[in-house]
Computed example of a mutant assay.
Amino acid sequence: MFIEKITPRFSETDVLGHINNTVLPVWFEAARAPIFRFFTPDLNPNEWKLIIAKVEVNFVGELFYGHDVEVKTVVEHVGSSSFVIRQEAYQQDNLCALGKTVLVRYDFKAKTKKALSSEEKSALNEHLVTDQK
């Protein structure tokens, strides 16, 4: 499991005083950086090896400015060329959002998916959690 602390910015707050719902996918992406490093250790965009096939966010509680958010990231499933990341956002020990992202190993030159290598699968499997929420 990877854990990242996010400090909400005032600009991410909407007129109702909540963190805007468009912010969570951005926070979740930032918290996926440790997993991105399995594929591109220096995060060089010219050497990128992943694309997003699906993103979903379920909002289960309110998020507010003024309190840090903890994003927990795990691998939920590893396939032959894709994998699923599950992320949870907590504020003041309350689960506020649950996200899932499907990432695909991709060959940008050939414009096609590519099988995950045994090293990539091994790195992902070290963070595999099988209990689903």
Score class of each variant (00 low, 15 high):
Val15Phe: 14
Ser122His: 14
Gly99Val: 09
Ser81Phe: 11
Lys133Trp: 12
Leu50Ser: 00
Ile6Ala: 06
Ala30Glu: 13
Val102Met: 07
Ile35Gly: 00
Cys96Asp: 05
Val75Phe: 08
Glu29Cys: 04
Leu128Ile: 09
Lys121Cys: 06
Ile85Asp: 01
Thr13Lys: 04
Ile3Leu: 11
Leu24Ile: 14
Arg105Glu: 03
Ser11Asp: 13
Arg37Pro: 00
Leu128Pro: 02
Ile51Asp: 01
Thr73Pro: 00
Leu124Glu: 07
Val74Ala: 09
Phe38Cys: 02
Ala53His: 12
Leu103Cys: 05
Cys96Ala: 13
Met1Tyr: 12
His67Glu: 15
Arg105Ile: 02
Leu95Ser: 02
Val74Pro: 04
Leu128Asp: 00
Thr73Ala: 05
Ile52Leu: 10
Arg9Lys: 15
Ser117Cys: 07
Thr7Arg: 14
Arg37Val: 05
Gly61Trp: 13
Ala31Asp: 02
Thr22Trp: 04
Ala97Asp: 03
Phe39Ile: 02
Leu50Asp: 02
Pro8Leu: 00
Trp48His: 09
Leu116Gln: 00
Arg86Met: 04
Ser11Phe: 07
Glu119Val: 12
Val57Lys: 05
Leu95Arg: 06
Tyr65Met: 10
Lys109Gly: 10
Ala89Arg: 00
Phe83Gly: 03
Ile3Ser: 12
Tyr106Ala: 01
Glu120Cys: 03
Asp107Glu: 08
Ala89Asn: 03
Tyr90Glu: 01
Ile52Phe: 09
Trp27Tyr: 08
Thr7Phe: 10
Val60Ala: 05
Phe36Tyr: 15
Phe108Gly: 03
Thr40Lys: 10
Thr130Gln: 13
